[in-house]
Amino acid sequence: MVNGAAANEGGRAASLEVMLAGIRLKNPVLVASGTFGYGREYAGWYDLNRLGGIMVKGTTLHPRQGNPSPRLVETPSGILNAVGLQNPGVDALIDGHLPFLRRFELAVIANIAGESVEEYAEVAAKLDREEGVSALEVNISCPNVRGGGLAFGTDPATAAEVIRAVKRHTRLPVIAKLSPNVTDIVAIARSVEEAGADAISLINTLVGMAIDIRARKPILGNIMGGLSGPAVRPVAVRMVWQVAQAVKVPVIGMGGIMTAEDALEFIMAGATAVAVGTANLVNPRAALEVIDGLGAFMNEQGIGDITELIGAALPEHIGRSWEGYDDY
C-alpha cells in the first residue's frame, strides 16, 4: 500500500485523495491541533508522510505558560483538558518547528489563537510569509483561555470579525475552527463563511467540569476544561451534518475519532476531511490505523474514490430533510 491509495480487489487503487480549500491532501486524515505537538513526538512511531496533514499546536503571538495542573482528567470515554494554550509563541514555531515540518510531504496547518482581533491578525501575517504552511486554522473556540478563544467563537458577528481580520493578513486558505458551545452552530458557520473562511473545522471541545468529592473541589487547576474523546463524537457528527448542508465551503470533521468507522461517520455526514485528536494520546499510531482502515473499507465496499462517500448521509441522499427533527 502506498500513500493515499489502497489496493482494490481488481488491482485498481482506491483513491483517498481529497481537495480541501485548494489544498491537495493525499488522504483525508489529519491530526488535530494540540494532540500531536509539532509532529516531532510522533515521528519516531511512524512515517509522518503517511498523514494527510498535521494541525500543529495552537500558536499565539507571545509565549504562553498555560494553566496550572492538574490539566487533565479522564471522564467516561473521554477526557477533560485545561492545558490553556501553552505554546512558545509564533516566532518559535517559525524558527524551531517549521523547518522540521518542511522535511515531510504533508499539509501543515498552523492553528492560531489570540486574545484580541489584532493579535490573530498579527500571527496570521507572520505565518503568511513562511514557506511550508499550507493553511491557517483559526481557533475561535478554545474554552481554556480567558478573554480570548471561546469568547470569539460564540457570537456570529465576533467570529466573522476575527475571520475577516485574518483574511486581510494572509493569502493562505483560512479554516475557522468552531466551538460546539453554542445554541445555533449553523448561524456561526454561515457567518464565518460569509466573512471569507475557506473551510470550517468542527468541533473544538465541549466545556465541562469534574469534581473531586473527597476534596470537595474541582479537579482541574483551571476548574473548567474542554471535553474530547469518544464521548463527544455524536455531538460532533450532528454538527458536521447540520453545517455541511448549510454552507458551501468544505468541513473538517473531528471529535472522538478512534477508528476508520468513526471517521466514516463524519465523512458521510459531509466532512471532506477528518482529524484524529484524543486518540493520538491513547494510541500513537491511531491516525495511521484510520488511514489504513479507510482503504480497507473502500475495498470491502467496492468504492474507488473516497469522494463518493462525502456527504453520503446528507438529506439529499437519504431523502429526508432535517426540518421537523429539530424539536426534541
Partner: peptide
C-alpha cells in the same frame, strides 16, 4: 507523579512548574 495524557510529550497535559517555565513530567 502526574496525571498524563499521551506520555510522549505532545499533549502538555502533565505539566509541572519548572524554574524556567512549565516542564512535561512525561518527557
Amino acid at each position: 507523579e502526574e496525571r498524563m495524557g499521551c506520555g510522549v510529550g505532545a499533549c502538555l497535559g502533565c505539566a509541572c512548574r519548572g524554574k524556567e517555565g512549565p516542564l512535561r513530567v512525561c518527557a
